[in-house]
Each structure stands twice: as C-alpha cells, then as structure tokens.
Design a protein around this nucleic acid. Structure first.
Lengths: 211, 211
DNA sequence: CAATCCCGCTAACAGTCGTTAGTGCGGATA
DNA sequence: TATCCGCACTAACGACTGTTAGCGGGATTG
C-alpha cells in the first residue's frame, strides 16, 4: 500500500501518473517497466511504491478516469434541453475530438491498453463502454427517425464516429500546418457532412463497385 | 537461424505466423510470450526456433506484409485509367474496409504493435506509411481542385478515412445483426456522404458551437 | 529539543523473458 | 539397410519483471 495516502499535496503522485500515461502510450502497458517509469520521474523503481499501489492500479486509474469523463459528458448532454439529435451527435463528436487533442496519452491508453486491466475491472470497463455506445446508438436511431440523420446502420455510425477521431493520433506526431482549432472543425464537419461535394444536388452515391 | 528454410511445405511455419498475429493482437507484442505462442500451436517454446528466427521477425513479417499490400493496391489503382479522384478515394476506403474485415489480426498488429519493431525496420515502416498517406492526400487535393470533394483540410481527410475503418474492430467482437457486406456499404457510404441528411438541400452545416 | 513521518535509497525475492545447446525419434532418401 | 534430416523434446543461460523489506536523512510537528 502506498504510504503517502494522507499527503497534503500529491504532486509527486500526479507526476508519476502523468509519466505512466505517456509511457504506457509509447511502449504499451506490458512494454513499460517500473524501472522505466521510475527513471522518467528521476527516482528508483522501489521508491515509486511510496506513492502508488501497483502498476495495475496506474492503468486502472487512467482507464476509468477517461470512461467516467465520457459518461459524465453524455449524461450532461442528455440533461440539456432544446437540442435535436443531430446537434447532440455533433456535441459528442466534438467532445471526443477535444479529448483526443488535449489528453492524447490518457485516451490512447484507455483505448489500446485497457485489455491489460485485471478482472473484475476489465469486465466493468467493457460494460461501461458498451452502455455508452448503446446510448449514442440510440441518439442516432432517433435522428434517423426524425429524418435528420441519413438512414444508415446506426451501429456502424457509432463505430465510425468513435474511430474516426483516432486519426488525431497521427496529427499529434506530425503537426504539419494544421491548428488544433482547424483540425476540430474539419473533422467534425467531415463526419457530419462526408467528403463528397453535393452542391449540384446529385444524390447518386457512386458508380459500379470498385475493386 | 531456423532450420527448415528448405522445407518443402512450410505449413507449420504459417500456422505459427497466424497464431502469432492473433496473440499479438489480443495481448500485444510484449505481452505475448514465446511460451504462449508455442502452447497455442501445441509445442514447446524452444521448438518454435526450428521454424522461425525470432519473435521480432514474426512481428516484422506481419507489419511489412500489410504495408506491402497497401502500397501495391495504391500502385494498381493509380495505373487504372478512367477513374476520377472521388472514385479512387472510394476504392481506397473500400480496400481498407475489406482488409479490416478479412484480416483483422494482421491489420491490428500492423496498426498497434508496429512500434515494437526494431531499427532500422521501425523507421522503414514509418517511412512507407508516410509515403502512402501523402499519396492519398494528393488524390484528395486533386478531388478538391476538381470540385468533387468538399474543400476540407486534405490532411485531416486522410487521417479520418484511415481511422474510421478501425471501428470494424468492435464489429468483429459483437457481430450484432450486421453482415460484412452491409457493414462495408454503410461505412463507405458514411465516409463518402457523412451522416447528415441533406435531402432538403440545406447547406448550413450546424448551429452555434456546442460544448 | 524530541518525536513523527514523508520519501528517497539499496538489496533482494521469486518468477518470467527470449533464446541456445544438445539429444533422440521417425520418416524419407541413397 | 545405412544415412540423413526435419522436428520435437529437456535443460539451462543471463537478463529482466513487479514488488517487498528495511534503512536513514531531512523536514514537520508536539
């Protein structure tokens, strides 16, 4: 058990958690050693245990912080009146884009490394994610019924929205000339409106099937 | 060095490579032990080395097979005459969708675990990926110039297309009631046309910014 | 000033890692 | 029949894994 539970300011602990998120992202959970983590905050491996309980606990913290933030946003959004389902979808998309822009390390760990969670946490995490996706799927179905959203397979739409934002990982590496604000707008716009230019009103999706 | 280089049929070797792809996907490269891999093909860990060179070699094989298949498809596509840039983009999207549907293990390893490649392979892999994305970006830019593609940030469009298909990973777990064919059509349609229903011709993207 | 406690350290643990060496069985080859 | 070779085995290697025990210095508290 970590000894400094009652520490007045957990500055060191937060520093460790931040470094863990970065390392878990870069090298994976099982690819990251406690000696790596310790070195990245300038202490010895054993000293980490003055601040944390275990390596698994660090992963758990990161994963569930992200999961909680997602479900909190969704709950707030559903409590907001006066929004049609398309606007709700846009808000959800925008929320995910911002998470990926502002908290890449944590989000990537929660997305890629959650599988290293131990039971019963793994099951709990998967359960919460399933609930979340099901709720978003409900909003999409509603949008389709209302005629605001194109009549696509709702399940596929959830998958696509929640995956499309993962492209931001690349952006983070090679910033190019695209600002965060421009990235956000382009990506939300792209998901909502697609890539095809429809100014001429043509509704034909595409020609014959391609290889 | 593996002893069976001159084996007439490398059935066992292929079996190992397939099992490796599945394990690397499920548990990550560094989370997978040679004893896990050996057990999954029914032999002892040391016996693996009658067929393969090293664990790192297995990863290298998987990653570069996928990379090669991608660049081959792109080369073939560019050699195909009579396709406008929107159709080319659709073909690229469809190709990625199919790869994710039919070869999930390998594709996921190449996408998530490539970071465990050793130099100089890691750099080579990243280089090839950069080249590939730049070529696709070129097609998008051309589509925008021709008025076939909406005037979005081309870089963001590449990122989004190549990431959106990752949603197929979820689909693989919980098949739900969506067939592979329906998934492919929905996803290509979604990326090309977006989620918004534009039958009324309204071109206003969205209202005021949302939280 | 004395007592407490945070927090770094070294040493060590039991276990696992990828990999090599060497052995022997069984079928194909000469 | 004698020889070879593919392929599985056991045993073992040095390095590395997450974690615990215990020590001591320095700041904080009574």
């Amino acid at each position: 058990m970590a000894r400094n539970i009652r520490t007045r300011e957990g500055g060191r602990r937060e520093e460790i958690a931040t470094a863990a998120a970065r390392l878990f992202r870069e090298k994976g959970f099982s690819g990251t050693g406690m000696r790596d983590l310790a070195g990245s905050v300038g202490i010895e491996a054993a000293s980490l245990y003055n601040h944390i309980d275990s390596k698994a606990g660090l992963l758990r913290e990161i994963c569930f912080r992200i999961a909680d933030d997602c479900s909190t946003h969704l709950r707030d959004l559903e409590a907001t009146p006066g929004l049609d389902s398309l606007r709700r979808l846009e808000s959800i998309t925008r929320f995910h884009v911002r998470m990926w822009i502002e908290r890449l390390d944590e989000v990537l760990v929660a997305t890629n490394e959650f599988r290293s969670l131990e039971e019963p946490w793994l099951e709990k995490f998967l359960h919460e994610r399933r609930i979340y996706m099901r709720q978003v799927e409900g909003i999409i179905s509603q949008g389709i019924r209302e005629g605001l959203v194109r009549p696509l397979e709702p399940y596929v739409v959830v998958l696509t929205i929640m995956s499309a934002v993962r492209g931001i990982e690349f952006w983070h590496r090679s910033r190019k000339n695209v600002s965060a604000a421009s990235l956000e707008e382009s990506m939300v716009d792209l998901i909502v409106n697609g890539i095809r230019n429809d100014t001429d009103g043509t509704s034909d999706t595409h020609g014959p099937a391609l290889p």
